[in-house]
Nucleic acid binder design. Structure first.
Lengths: 156, 156
DNA sequence: CCGAAGTGGATGCCATGGCATACATTGTCC
DNA sequence: GGACAATGTATGCCATGGCATCCACTTCGG
């Protein structure tokens, strides 16, 4: 017996996914702004650049499922604040290699502590290790599939 | 033995959550725009109004974890297109009761078919019923906790 | 009742992102 | 090697959302 239809289950999944993401992202952003003067999207870019030094704009756009323009402007804002620089790309004069400055690296390190603390406060008490692992595994599988299919990446 | 630290697990959970939400939300929005001329946030509002006729602005703001202003403007756009109306609230002259028009109701019904189809295409092949249920249950629990604590709701 | 505080929502200003476009560099074909 | 397509990014315009403010109505104290 199928007491609930598959579409209905997926609708609830989507709704809960969107609401959780919105609230967590907002909460993380509030704290990062208050304690470090950055917003959540900047934290994500900084963390990405720490883990992928010399990244290019298009690469970040596809990871974040954002448009090229948005990332380009985001990098502008990081460089304007002295947290990253655009190094000329010796292999291709059209693109730059983006790298963190020392200030940027120091900032991510501090901001990540705040980030971890917020997540621990907000999800730690609610999801035990098992639930977290189950949710994380489903989301990781979904993410891989969506990325492989290039789903939901804006044009620009 | 804890082979992976709890903060690291939560970081990955957060990242996967955000990436999945972004891509799914974008993909749903693309289709809704192409087939019905609405964006994803409008679809969510329409669906909410269908399920909660006579809703008020503040109520929608807290459900969607959005600011009052954003919802107020969103309702403006729905009424401008003839999909909803603001009925005077007999119990409180400051607020309105928002209700779908017949056009609005027809639109949600059609758009929801598109929505279901997109979700079926994008998550159906990747997550079997069990994974989907596990993910949905973790997200539902997290959502309840975040909503109860009023986490991540913008000020305005 | 009257005034003051409180509450619900609308509006204005600004920052951010999508999309279209423009520009520079690279690759390709002859 | 020179024209032409393709690629990578930057820029401009517009729509949307956050936040601060403002206005209307309601509630509470006397």
């Amino acid at each position: 017996m199928a007491s609930t239809s598959a579409p209905a289950v997926r609708r609830r999944f989507f709704d809960d996914l969107v609401r959780c993401e919105t609230r967590l992202y907002n909460a993380v952003g509030e704290r990062l702004r208050a304690e470090h003067g950055i917003v959540a999207s900047q934290f994500e870019m900084l963390r990405y650049l720490r883990d992928h030094p010399g990244a290019r704009v298009a690469e970040m756009a596809s990871t974040f499922a954002a448009g090229i323009g948005a990332i380009s402007k985001g990098v502008d804002r990081l460089t304007a604040r002295g947290w990253a620089t655009r190094e000329p790309n010796p292999a291709d004069g059209r693109s730059s290699l983006i790298v963190l400055t020392d200030d940027g690296a120091a900032l991510v390190a501090e901001a990540e502590r705040t980030f971890d603390r917020v997540l621990a406060d907000l999800v730690g008490p609610t999801l035990d290790e098992e639930e977290l692992a189950a949710g994380a595994s489903a989301l990781a599988a979904l993410r891989r599939a969506l990325e492989a299919a290039r789903v939901g990446v804006p044009t620009g």
